[in-house]
């Protein structure tokens, strides 16, 4: 027989507490936004605010549950994640986001391709960026010309009439 609860002696799970706080924050935002809405009196009981209030109440309850779970260390063991590749992938998505509007689909997406390859250990960028641009250009040609998908154009895409 053991006396006392060994789980309580450990520190609560910090990340779980942060998640609980975020859930509570989302619930608060929904409550606030719904209270700002002007609902005609006829719809007060079955109007557009009823369901969101239910969701917000649910999120609040789950947030409390997360706090309890944090103190009981109820979360599974977390892997020791390597953040450098994550930064490369996110960097690739941001690079694409910021370039695609003026440089066109191929250049933006080529950057994304090269940055992602870098995250998985394939470089250097001066080799993979051209590969990515050519690949993205072929994809653009197939989908924009073949399937009439409307994809952003840049100087490179305008070369094709």
């Amino acid at each position: 027989m053991t006396s006392g609860n060994p789980n309580l002696s450990r520190r609560p799970d910090g990340a779980a507490l942060v998640i609980a706080a975020i859930l509570a924050l989302i619930a608060a935002v929904i409550f606030w936004q719904m209270s700002q809405m002007r609902v005609p009196p006829i719809q007060a009981r079955v109007g557009p605010t009823v369901f969101p209030y239910i969701i917000a109440a649910g999120l609040l309850a789950l947030s409390v549950g997360m706090v309890v779970s944090a103190f009981r260390r109820g979360f599974p063991e977390r892997d020791d994640d390597n953040y450098i590749p994550i930064a490369w992938v996110i960097g690739g998505l941001v690079a694409q986001l910021l370039t695609i509007g003026w440089a066109g689909f191929s250049v933006g997406t080529g950057l994304l391709f090269a940055f992602t390859a870098m995250a998985f250990g394939r470089g250097p960028l001066w080799k993979t960026i051209p590969i990515g641009i050519v690949f993205a250009f072929i994809v653009w040609f197939m989908f924009a010309k073949g399937l009439q998908l409307s994809l952003p154009m840049g100087p490179l895409e305008r070369l094709i009439p």
Binding site: T109, L112, T116, V139, F143
Partner: peptide
């Protein structure tokens, strides 16, 4: 590297 690079290219293609 090529596999996941390709997956993200198609992911953003579909979204656009």
């Amino acid at each position: 590297p090529w596999l996941y690079g390709g997956i993200l290219v198609f992911a953003t293609l579909g979204t656009l």
